[in-house]
Design a binder for these strands. Structure first.
Lengths: 228, 228
DNA sequence: CAGAATCGAGAGCAGTGCTCTTGACAGTGA
DNA sequence: TCACTGTCAAGAGCACTGCTCTCGATTCTG
C-alpha cells in the first residue's frame, strides 16, 4: 500500500504515526490536559517547532487521538460481538467496552470526559463515535427478526421523540419499534454513565469494585430493552 | 455570625469568597483547564503571588470550587424535592439536576467530567457529592412505607452485590429491598450519563434537543426502580 | 539540472504555576 | 504605650508552555 509514494511521503506518514504514538504514551501517563507538545517532541528527539509541520496545533493532535480512541473502542466492542447467543453477545459487548475503558482510562476520558475548552469536535469524529451504539442497535435488530425481542408496551413514546427518531435513528435500524429505539438510547447513556462513574471515582465507597455490579447491570439493561 | 472575629479574620474570609467568585466567573467562560491564577488575581486587582496566601495551589482552588459545585447542585435538587406526589417529585428532581447542569456546564464538567490529572478528591467532597443519590433514596424510602413501591422481582441481586450494599447503601436506606437499591444505583448512573452526554455533545444528531427525551426517560426510570 | 516545495533547527514572544524575599501592617502581651 | 510576632501584598525570578517566524538544508518535480 506504500507503493507509488515518494520517500518524503512515506517518511511523513511514519513520523505522523510516531508522533501520535508518543503523544498517546504521554497521554496515558500525564493525562490530556498536561499533554505537552514540547515533551512529545523531546521524546522523539526533535525540536518542538518541527512538530507543527505535522499537526498545526495541539488541538489537532488531540483530535487525531480522539478519533483513534473512538476507533480503538469501536474495534474492541466489535471483536466481542458475534456468536449465536444474543444475550451472551450483549453482555460481552458491555464487558469489552468496560475492559477497554479500564485499560485506557486517559483515552476514555478524552472521548467521554469533559470536552476540551474551545475545542469543537469535527464531523469526522461522528462516524467512529457511533460504532458502539450501532453495534447494540444491530444486535437488537437481529433479535427482532429472530423473534427474541419483547417490545415494551407500558410506556408510549411521545410524538416529539418519534419525530427525532425518524430523522436519524430509524434509518440506522428500520425494523426496530420506537419504544425499543427509545430504550436503546437510555441504555446507551446508562452504559457510559456507569463506566464514567467507575473510572472517575464516583462509585468509590458504594459499588467499587464494580465487576459484579457491571455484569448484573448489563443483564438488567438487556431485559429493559426487551432482549430475552 | 461574624462577631468575635478580628478585622483580619473577617477580611480574610471576605477575600477568600471574592477569589472563589472571580474563579467561578472565569471558570464559566474559559473552562477548568484554562483557569488561570494570574487572570483571577488580575480581575481582583492583586498580584498573583498574594493569591497563594489563600489557596496554597491551583488544585486547592479547584477543590474549593468542586465542593461548592456539589453543594450548589445538591441544594438545587433538594429545592425541587417535597410535595405529596412522589412521581412528580421524582421527575422534578431529575429536571432540577438537569437545569442546574445546563446553567453551569463548566461547574458540572468539573465534578462529573474527567478528573483533573494528579488530583485526588479529598474525603471532604464525598458528603456533598452524595446529596442527589441520597435524595432519590429518601424518596423511594418514603414510597416504600407509603406502599407506592413495586419491588422488582424478575432479577435477583447477586450475593456479592448484597455484601457491597450492606456496607454502605443499606445504612442510608434501611427499609429498601436489595433489588431497589441495585436499581437505584443503575438509575443514578443513567441520570448523570444522560446529562453528560447532552452537555458534552454526545447526543448531538440523535436526541438533541433532549428536553422530551429527558422527561420521558425520568418517568421510565421511575417505573424501572419500582415507583408507581 | 534548476526551481519549487518541504523539512528540521533555533530564536523569540507572551503566557503559565509557583517560590522566595522584602517591607509594611495588624494583633497582642508587658 | 511600646515592642514583638505573625500575616499581608508586592515584586522578581525560575522553569515551563503553545505558537510563530526565519534560515539553511534536503527532496521532489517539471
Amino acid at each position: 500500500m506504500n507503493a507509488g509514494r515518494t520517500a518524503r511521503e512515506r517518511a511523513r506518514a511514519e513520523l505522523t504515526e510516531e508522533i501520535k504514538g508518543a503523544a498517546r504514551r504521554q497521554l496515558a501517563t500525564v493525562g490530556a490536559e498536561a499533554l505537552s507538545l514540547r515533551a512529545v517532541s523531546r521524546e522523539l528527539g526533535m525540536v518542538s517547532s518541527a512538530l507543527y509541520r505535522y499537526f498545526p496545533s495541539r488541538d489537532e493532535l488531540l483530535t487525531a487521538l480522539i478519533i483513534d480512541a473512538y476507533d480503538a473502542l469501536g474495534s474492541a466492542a466489535e471483536r466481542a460481538a458475534g456468536g449465536d447467543d444474543l444475550l451472551a453477545e450483549w453482555v460481552a459487548i458491555y464487558a469489552a467496552v468496560r475492559d477497554w475503558a479500564r485499560a485506557h482510562p486517559q483515552e476514555y476520558a478524552l472521548i467521554y470526559g469533559s470536552p476540551i475548552s474551545g475545542y469543537k469536535a469535527p464531523q469526522t469524529t461522528v462516524e467512529p463515535a457511533i460504532r458502539v451504539p450501532l453495534l447494540l442497535l444491530g444486535l437488537l435488530q437481529r433479535a427482532q427478526v429472530g423473534g427474541r425481542l419483547a417490545v415494551p408496551t407500558d410506556a408510549p413514546v411521545p410524538t416529539g421523540l418519534l419525530a427525532q427518531q425518524t430523522e436519524v435513528l430509524v434509518p440506522l435500524a428500520p425494523d426496530l419499534p420506537p419504544a425499543v429505539l427509545m430504550r436503546t438510547v437510555i441504555v446507551w447513556t446508562q452504559l457510559f454513565g456507569m463506566i464514567s462513574f467507575e473510572l472517575f471515582g464516583q462509585l468509590v465507597g458504594s459499588m467499587d469494585p464494580a465487576d459484579e455490579f457491571f455484569e448484573s447491570t448489563s443483564r438488567q439493561m438487556a431485559a429493559f430493552v426487551g432482549l430475552t
